[in-house]
Computed example of a mutant assay.
Amino acid sequence: MLPTIRAHRVEVRTDALSPQQHDPPPGRVFRQLYDEYIGADNETPPTPRSRADHLLRHAVQHVRRGIRRGSEDGGGAVQDGAGLVDEAAARHHALMAIKRTVPNLATEDIAAATAFYVEVLGFEVVMDMGWIVTLSDRANPKAQLSLMTHDATAPVVPDVSVEVDDVDAAHQAARNAGAEIVHPLTDEPWGVRRFFMRDPSGRVINVLTHRT
Rank of each mutant, 00 (worst) to 15 (best):
P19H: 08
A59H: 00
E163Y: 08
H58E: 15
V167C: 12
L147W: 01
Q144L: 02
D86M: 11
V10G: 08
V156Q: 08
P25N: 04
G81V: 03
D137I: 11
L145N: 02
L135F: 08
A88I: 06
E36T: 03
N104M: 05
D41C: 02
S136L: 05
D86A: 13
Y34I: 07
G178N: 09
L2Y: 11
V160G: 11
T44I: 13
D35N: 15
V157Q: 10
G178E: 13
F196P: 09
R203I: 03
A88R: 06
G70M: 01
P45T: 09
P24E: 09
T44H: 14
T14A: 14
H22S: 14
M129H: 11
R203M: 06
S50L: 07
V78E: 10
P45H: 10
L135M: 11
E87K: 05
A106Y: 11
P184I: 06
E119H: 01
V192I: 08
A169N: 07
S201Q: 13
G122R: 04
V182S: 11
D23L: 13
L105H: 10
D165C: 07
R175F: 01
G74D: 09
A170N: 07
L2P: 06
F195K: 04
R194F: 06
D187Y: 05
H183A: 15
H150W: 09
P155I: 00
T44Q: 15
T186M: 02
P19S: 05
A97Q: 07
V204W: 03
P184S: 07
D168W: 07
D41H: 02
D128W: 03
A90C: 05
P26G: 06
D109H: 00
R203N: 15
P141L: 00
F195M: 08
D80N: 09
P200C: 06
T134D: 14
L208C: 12
R13W: 14
A152P: 07
A111C: 04
F196S: 06
I98C: 04
F30N: 13
R13E: 15
N176K: 06
W131F: 14
T101Y: 03
A16L: 11
H93P: 05
D168A: 05
V192L: 10
M197L: 14
E72F: 04
V133W: 00
P155A: 03
